[in-house]
Design a protein around this nucleic acid. Structure first.
Length: 868
RNA sequence: GGGCGAUUAGCUCAGUUGGUUAGAGCGCUGCCUUCACACGGCAGAGGUCGGCAGUUCGAGUCUGCCAUCGCCCACCA
């Protein structure tokens, strides 16, 4: 249902000296008090526009990039609200997860030690230790308390910033990813995945961050260039020695085979034979696999358990034994492994025991050199190494039991179905869809969702403990959905009591938590009240819009699609809108780590929220945008202009819209109708920037030309001769003035509404001077209505008047006189059509140019102005 | 290695199905202060549209190749 048409106030109150200062406080308080952005949950699904807002990570402060992209969402929200949609616009805070833990550790100077007991009334050190190793150790529960304390204050600051920026969020709809509702949704969704076989646990090699002591998923990887070196090693064999090249010589002890391409003639005869590893003398087979590349090094590679993800593939597909020595702490195991049988081998291993990969490499190179197995010297190179995107150490691959959710990484059919999902909603801009296809198509493993961390949603399962004290991981005990959320560390599974925890015949709780994406992949479910509030859910899901950054297509966007696919057999939204990045003037992505981030609140105060929003609004969907304070200054100026132009236009008084009669006025309203149409179309395509650009251009020409042309007439009949003769006997002496006043009112009301999404504070201010209610609940302008008033209009009237006026001004500029200087006569030559158009506005042009006479003749366009 | 996007005035960017002498803002230069706005107004200078071919009566716009930049993805021993 469309909002009612704008209703003028009976009394106008226009300030003498309008200002944009203080509008943020004034109007955000008013909106809050009036519930301007409150969601009306009685509306039917078809009337609702629901937004799956990205919950910002609460681990510090919001930066200007957040301001940028969140403004974009707000523009869309405000447009739809004015179109009559009931906008469901919640705000979430992503406060669980590793970044929060990291911030809490550094902020308070504490580290979590799950072995410690809870300390009642704990207070963190007043002065946090400088070095991480000196941080205070606290219990898991105390640590979680500290997380809540810090995220609580952060979230308050975030909300304050968003309100100041003017996001039209319904603050009663806010949620946190660590909150009870999120935990319940996260655990419920997981249990359903488990029941349907979409989630499973497995003891398998996984990517492991040694620093964080936790597993990570494929989606959280990034490559970083690191120095390394090729080492050429000789493997002994009866059929002749073989040379391989490796960057990880320390893993020779974990070597389980050598591999070459099945078609490689050089090694064909060797397949099925064995070779001996250098230093350790372990017999390993020579095997064939297509992934081995003949033209790389010698064409033979060493398969270790596990040096990289290719090793995992080979190990799995070739059914090789696992001989891992690197432990979860990143160090080589202390005792010599059982596959080393000779004394020499075991004593050689003694030099590696307990060392980290780097130290072990140094030792191993010496061992190899001494044994003569190292050919030449290591050749330094730079190569990409896999890191956890938030981590500090190269990832290792260790074998451990983890939980997974299927995502098509091991299942062709599922992968195909998920790729198809990417085609079932609209992407803005559309080319971003390719990234989704690339990512899903390239998956090579299921989604690892368990994390060995503390501040997050607990994995809601227990395991029975057998008589010998071993947990039976294949028979997890699950809670009833009605009891969620639960923490298996403190809750007891059905049929057990606390005394049975950890004892033979009893149970143990899963100690891990979910990856943060496992919960944030459910933001539609969380925000819309899945199962907890079925009525709300029915009115808001599937959602209309998912705004987000393009760099998290592979994580947030994809995982949300996966969860919705499994649970609802649908896509979670109709539209995905991808925002670009903010680049600093050097064209690098702005980020905290680069130290080039400007604090948003300072900018909002300096340029006004509307000024900053103006800059953000100029960034088109998906396009990276340069951080440019100049643009904020321009935005601020535009806001001030809107105040002053509104004040001026309103100073002439009101007139009925039926009074529009003059050709110039009809031309203005006609072109305004074109503008409205283009703006509406642009917004429907999520191209808010085009609407702003066109509206702004129209507005400046409205101020520079139309206002100047019409103000004399609007003041009313003054001296003799300015008012034309009665036309058709219908017009009185005030007809021209009434037409101007009516047009000014209509145009102003339309322009204020077109600016409302972009400059919400200024628009609301000028609207309040003369209209009832909030502009943000007013109806979006209607092009058809404008066309009706404009009737049969001629755009030439407006353009020719502007052009002649410009020529008169130029004459004054060249003569270095004031724009108010009198002009004795103006003569215009132009085509007969344009002369005819000009004749219809001759009085206005003469008036605006302060000219006594205006004559026209056919010919080439030329204007001659003779100054008085 | 595969892919996506960008390349238009000193800077930031428009340019919608190919159509008259390529646009805006900022910056720069000059001029104008009572009468909406000096947190202003008016005007001016400034571009071989990354390069080379091609299609066309006509190309900033379409096609191909190349270059530079940014990003995404990749099993990079």
């Amino acid at each position: 249902m469309a909002p009612p048409p704008p209703t003028p106030r009976p009394d106008r109150t226009v300030p003498d000296k309008p200002s944009i200062d203080g509008l943020e406080e004034k109007w955000s308080a008013a909106w809050d008090a009036q519930g301007t952005y409150r969601f009306d949950r009685s509306k039917a699904r078809a009337e609702v526009f629901s937004i799956d807002t990205p919950p910002p990570t609460v681990s510090g402060s919001l930066h200007v990039g957040h301001v940028f992209s969140f403004t974009h969402t707000d523009l869309i929200a405000r447009y739809h609200r004015m179109r009559g949609d009931e906008v469901f616009y919640p705000m979430g805070w992503d406060d669980n997860g590793v970044p929060t833990e990291r911030r809490v550790e550094n902020y308070f100077g504490v580290l979590c030690d799950p072995a410690l007991a809870y300390a009642e009334g704990y207070e963190p050190p007043t002065e946090p230790a400088k070095e991480r190793r000196d941080f205070e150790r606290i219990s898991r529960r105390n640590f979680v308390e500290m997380c809540h304390r810090l995220t609580g204050t952060d979230e308050q600051a975030f909300e304050e910033l968003w309100r100041h920026l003017g996001l039209s969020v319904d603050w009663e709809l806010s949620y946190t990813t660590i909150g009870v509702e999120s935990q319940r949704a996260s655990q419920r969704a997981f249990l359903r995945n488990l029941a349907r076989g979409e989630a499973y646990s497995a003891d398998a090699p996984c990517l492991w961050d040694v620093g964080f002591q936790m597993a990570v998923s494929q989606a959280e990887l990034e490559d970083r260039e690191r120095p390394g070196a090729y080492h050429d090693l000789v493997f002994g064999a009866d059929g002749g020695d073989l040379t391989i090249s490796t960057t990880r010589p320390e893993l020779v002890v974990s070597c389980v085979a050598l591999v070459a391409h099945p078609d490689d003639e050089r090694y064909r005869a060797r397949f099925g034979t064995t070779v001996r590893t250098p230093v350790f003398g372990v017999e390993v087979p020579m095997v064939a696999h297509e992934l081995a590349e003949p033209d790389k090094g010698t064409g033979v590679a060493m398969i270790c358990t596990f040096g990289d993800t290719t090793d995992v593939t080979w190990w799995r597909e070739l059914d090789l034994p696992a001989r891992a020595v690197i432990q979860r702490n990143g160090r080589f195991r202390d005792d010599a492994p059982e596959w080393l049988t000779s004394d020499e081998a075991r004593s050689a291993y003694g030099r590696l025991a307990g060392k980290n990969a780097k130290q072990a490499r140094r030792e191993m190179v010496e061992l190899l050199r001494d044994s003569g197995a190292l050919i030449g010297e290591p050749e330094p190179i730079t190569h990409p190494v896999k890191f956890y995107e938030q981590g500090y150490d190269p990832l290792e691959i260790v074998q451990s039991r983890q939980w997974y959710i299927r995502n098509g990484g091991r299942d062709e059919a599922l992968r195909g179905a998920l790729v198809d999902r990417g085609g079932q909603f609209a992407w803005h801009p559309d080319y971003m869809r390719v990234r989704f296809d690339n990512w899903v198509g390239g998956l090579n493993g299921d989604w690892l969702v368990s994390r060995q961390r503390y501040f997050g949603v607990p994995i809601p399962v227990w395991y029975p403990v057998d008589a010998s004290g071993e947990p039976k991981f294949d028979e997890p005990i699950v809670p009833d959905e009605s009891t969620l959320p639960i923490d298996p560390q403190s809750h007891v599974p059905p049929g057990y009591d606390e005394s049975q925890r950890g004892v033979p015949g009893g149970f143990v709780g899963d100690p891990d938590i979910f990856d943060t994406w496992a919960t944030s992949s459910l933001t539609p479910q969380i925000a819309c009240g899945w199962e907890d509030d079925p009525e709300l859910f029915a009115r808001t899901f599937p959602m209309d819009m998912r705004p987000q950054a393009h760099e998290i297509i592979r994580t947030w966007l994809f995982s949300t699609v996966v969860r919705s696919h499994f649970e609802f057999d649908t896509v979670p939204w109709a539209h995905a809108a991808l925002s670009g990045w903010i680049l600093d003037p050097d064209r690098k992505k702005m980020s905290k780590s680069k130290g080039n981030v400007v604090t948003p609140m300072g900018l909002l105060q300096q340029y006004g929220s509307d000024g900053v929003r103006y800059w953000a609004s100029s960034g088109r969907p998906g396009v990276d945008t340069v951080f440019d304070e100049q643009q904020m200054k321009v935005g601020r100026r535009l806001a001030i202009k809107l105040l002053n132009a509104s004040k001026f236009a309103l100073s002439f008084g009101a007139a009925d819209t039926s009074q529009v009669s003059r050709a110039l006025d009809r031309a203005l309203l006609g072109s305004l109708a074109d503008l409205v149409e283009e703006c509406s179309r642009s917004f429907e395509e999520f191209d808010y920037a085009r609407c702003l650009e066109r509206t702004e251009a129209f507005f400046w020409s409205f101020c520079d030309d139309y206002l100047e042309l019409v103000k004399g007439r609007a003041y009313g009949p003054t001296d003799e001769g300015t008012e034309p003769a009665v036309i058709d006997g219908a017009e009185g002496p005030d007809a021209g003035s009434a037409s101007a006043k009516a047009t000014l009112s209509i145009a102003l009301s339309v322009l204020q509404r077109l600016f409302a999404p972009f400059l919400p504070f200024t628009s609301e201010e000028v609207w309040s001077w003369w209209m009832e209610g909030s502009v943000h609940r007013a109806a979006w302008p209607d092009a058809a209505e404008l066309r009706k008033i404009a009737g049969d209009w001629d755009p030439t009237v407006l353009s020719v008047a502007g052009e002649v006026l410009r020529e008169i001004r130029r004459a004054k500029t060249e003569a270095k006189v004031s724009m108010r200087a009198e002009v004795a006569s103006v003569s215009v030559s132009d085509t007969t059509e344009r002369i005819a158009a000009l004749d219809q506005v001759a009085d206005d042009v003469r008036d605006a140019g302060n000219a006594s006479a205006l004559s026209t003749e056919p010919g080439e366009f030329a204007v001659t102005a003779v100054l008085a």
